[in-house]
Amino acid sequence: MSRPEPEALDPAIVEQAIQWLVRLRFNQADEQTQRTFEHWLQQRPEHALAWQRVETLGDEFEGVPAQLARQTLKGAQQGMRRRESLKLLGVLATVGTAAWLGRDYTPLPSMLAQQRSSTGEQRRFELDDGSLIQLNSDSAVDSDFDPQRRLIILRRGEIIVNVGADEHSPKARPLWVQSRDGIMRAHSSRFLVRERDDGTLVAAQEGSVTVFPGSSQTPASRNVLAGNQLLFTPSGTRTFRDNGLDPWGWGDGVISANHMRLGDFIAELSRYRPGVLRCAEEVADRRVSGTFQLADNDRVLALIAQSLRLHIDYRTRYWVTVTAAT
């Protein structure tokens, strides 16, 4: 299915958003800078929309040397032709830190993916085979079907897949999912795949999923049975530490925690709101339990502040710190 074309924005506004991204992400931002940015953001709806799109681009530079990221973004801001901009962005895949080396992923595929979600957004769509895909916050996927197989490519973030019956195909085609860390074959009607900092997490709700770290040619594969989870990297599987988060909760629009460390809870909640959300070390080991609606992040923060005696410091709407109540 094709996705609607994004709303066109004034190039001058996009340039302003890029300038703010450079100042906030790669330079020390003082309180005056934050206040000025907040004022700019609230001046016009187009400013907020431009920031939402450009901020996603900034996330692509995580782990890349700051000087290179600054040069790349400033180059885009200074009127570089589109082809030259894309070429320069692609350079990041080969001159960044070790986390980028050896992977086929550059910033461009997730930016140009067939289906994307913005920060704080969950989206649902249906593929030609009848499969239903849920995109979590700040996620991107492509699909590549041919007569022999169905392939879903996770470019960024997290998805839940309800496997379709593929009724219009003359023969049953296997369904595969590719992530940056390997490839998975679904023998399941519902499963989840999430890219994390420490690898790719796969969880099955029904049936099973076969995981091939690195590629489908990897001889060492693992089956993930219904009700189980597995974390893997290109070199193999890793120990998955259950931190008390229900991985399926976001599919119902909630974040559900069971005796979850506050620092981990805040890090998870930060995925669903733009800007910076931090937890002070002094309260990071407090524990959170409950089910909270993701549609209202500020309400979630207010509830945990009340139950755990916390203070929510809103330096700006986009710069929030959780500390101990005085």
Rank of each mutant, 00 (worst) to 15 (best):
I255M: 05
V276T: 11
R83L: 15
Q19M: 13
G182N: 09
D129Y: 02
D197Y: 09
G244R: 12
F265E: 04
R273W: 10
R173G: 09
R287V: 03
S169I: 09
G96V: 05
I312R: 05
D198Q: 09
S221E: 14
I133T: 02
D129V: 02
N136Y: 02
I266W: 07
T36L: 15
Q34P: 00
G207Y: 10
T316H: 11
A29L: 02
F212M: 13
G253I: 09
V300W: 00
R123V: 09
G236P: 06
D129S: 07
S215G: 10
D104Q: 08
A204W: 10
R103H: 15
L310N: 03
A284G: 07
E126V: 13
R309D: 12
L73C: 09
N136D: 12
F145M: 09
G199V: 00
L88N: 10
T237Y: 08
E158V: 01
L277E: 06
P247S: 09
L262K: 03
L68K: 02
Q78D: 15
Q114W: 01
G120H: 08
V254K: 05
L92G: 00
D144L: 10
Q178F: 02
S208C: 11
M184D: 04
E46R: 00
M111W: 04
T291Y: 12
D104T: 06
P147M: 04
A204C: 15
A48C: 02
R70P: 04
G63H: 03
L262S: 08
W250T: 00
G199M: 01
W250F: 08
R123I: 06
V224T: 05
A66K: 14
L112A: 09
L57W: 10
A324R: 12
L9P: 05
T97K: 15
S208H: 03
D128W: 06
R70W: 02
G251K: 04
W40I: 01
I183Y: 13
R81F: 11
T36S: 15
F292A: 04
D181N: 09
F240M: 14
Y105P: 00
V202A: 05
I312A: 11
Q52D: 10
A267S: 08
Q43P: 01
P109Q: 04
G199A: 03
E55A: 04
I255E: 01
N297H: 14
R241S: 13
Q134G: 12
A50R: 00
G75S: 06
G157A: 05
V322M: 05
D252E: 11
W20T: 04
T218L: 14
V54W: 04
T218S: 15
M1T: 14
G96T: 08
S289K: 07
A99E: 11
R155T: 05
S139H: 07
E84T: 13
L151C: 02
I13Q: 06
N27V: 08
L21S: 05
T321F: 07
R35I: 14
D128R: 13
T119I: 15
L303M: 12
G182T: 14
R82F: 14
L108F: 03
L68A: 08
S189R: 08
V209T: 13
N136V: 02
D142Q: 05
R156M: 14
R222H: 12
W248D: 15
A186R: 01
A220G: 07
K87W: 12
E31F: 11
R116C: 12
R185S: 10
D181Q: 13
G214S: 08
K171L: 15
T200H: 03
F61E: 06
I304E: 07
S208P: 05
D129R: 00
R155Y: 05
D129G: 00
R222A: 12
L301A: 07
L230W: 01
